[in-house]
Computed example of a mutant assay.
Amino acid sequence: MPMPPLAALPIRRLTPRDLTACADLSEDRGWPREEHKWGLLLAAGTGYGIDDPEGGLVTACVVTGYGSRHTPDLCGIGMVLVAERHARRGVGRRLMRHVMAECGTSPLTLYATPNGRPLYEELGFKATGSSEMVLGHFTADGPTSAVATRPATAEDLTTLVRLDGEVFGVDRTHLITRLPAFADLVRVAEDNGRITGYAAAWPNMDTHVVGPLIARDLGTAKALVSSLAAATDRPLRTDVDVRHADLLAWLKERGLASVGFNAVMTHGVPDLPGDWRRRFAPLTVAAG
């Protein structure tokens, strides 16, 4: 029996049961499987995909909504993937149009690779910023920071959610409350008993990804990264807003190297909400 045309295959909601199929799709496109990250995204967000009658997924993506539950204040779109055997046949465009319609009037954001950016521009997204991915073994150097850091505790969670909402600009309670289980390390910075920043390091293949990284200032951000690095032997990876040039220079001086750039893009809003000066790195670019 001939396979139905791609345009006739229905788009459906994905669930955590689709995690292996999503990881297979990542691998098909030459990306790491990233099952740990897929697990978070499928639990905290809404996945969309098309089943391949011959097995696996034709395409997939995940939308993470923030703020209001019924009409989100912001939707982050990520992990937009099309199987190699179905590439360049309009499948990604069809999926994106469906997702944008599902999001309704909510503003949208995503991190675009150079390859993906033309499609998103065609769909009306505008580049509003850029992030640089850096990766490598962190080498401590110089005097110990005067900024005090410590492991986060369960009692800190309410404060972290409040601080995160203030800096990110919309409520991310459903994501931040998953951090203790998702991340291997979560640390806070304090000044006279007041939390002035926090950061997490979560496992992704053979690295630890630093994110989110939210801090009052550059010195606080450096102290948080240093404290995370001291607790792991894995290479660190993080995606830093390029406006934080001083942090990027400091990371490169300590062994991390640039491995690429992503355009930060928005739709339906001229810029992202919140305070970028305290938002150094996202939890993951896949969640906006």
Rank of each mutant, 00 (worst) to 15 (best):
L108A: 12
H98S: 03
E155A: 15
L218Y: 14
L228M: 01
G193Q: 05
S131Y: 10
D206L: 06
P118H: 06
A223D: 07
S227D: 14
M100T: 09
G92Q: 02
T109I: 04
D184E: 15
I176F: 06
A152D: 01
Y120G: 09
R162G: 14
A140L: 12
L135C: 13
G136V: 07
G165Q: 13
A215I: 00
T109F: 06
D164S: 09
V170F: 04
V209W: 02
T144E: 15
F182R: 01
T158S: 13
N192T: 10
V225P: 00
R117V: 01
A221I: 02
F125S: 03
D184V: 02
M205L: 10
R216H: 15
N204V: 14
A148R: 10
A146G: 11
V170S: 05
T149V: 10
P107T: 09
N204K: 01
V134C: 12
T128L: 00
A101Y: 01
K222T: 06
L108Q: 13
L157M: 14
N204T: 09
D184Y: 09
V99C: 09
D206C: 05
L228F: 03
F168I: 03
C103W: 03
A101F: 03
V161S: 04
R162T: 15
R93N: 05
V188C: 03
H174G: 08
N204R: 10
A152S: 12
L119V: 05
L179K: 04
G129D: 08
G116I: 04
G211N: 09
V134A: 12
A112I: 08
Y111G: 07
F168L: 00
E155R: 04
T149P: 13
T128E: 05
V167R: 03
L135S: 13
G211W: 08
T173C: 12
G124R: 00
E132H: 02
R93Q: 13
I176V: 15
T113A: 09
G142V: 11
G92E: 05
A201V: 13
A127I: 05
T232Q: 08
L157W: 12
G193M: 00
A148N: 02
P114R: 09
D206A: 12
V225K: 00
R178S: 14
T220A: 10
A152F: 09
T177K: 07
R94E: 11
N204S: 14
E155C: 01
V210Q: 02
G169N: 08
G129T: 11
A229S: 06
V161Q: 05
L110E: 12
D206P: 05
H208A: 10
A201F: 13
D184G: 15
L108I: 11
F138G: 04
V147M: 08
C103L: 08
A101P: 03
E190P: 07
H174A: 15
A229M: 01
K126Q: 13
P107N: 10
T159I: 07
V147K: 03
L163H: 10
D191C: 11
P180A: 08
R178K: 14
V167P: 06
I214T: 10
W202H: 15
T144Y: 02
S227A: 13
R187H: 15
A183S: 15
Y198L: 01
R117S: 12
G169V: 03
E132P: 02
T159L: 11
S131N: 05
L175I: 14
G193L: 04
T109R: 09
Y120H: 04
L108M: 14
G165N: 09
H208F: 11
G129Y: 10
L119Q: 04
W202G: 08
A154G: 11
L228Q: 01
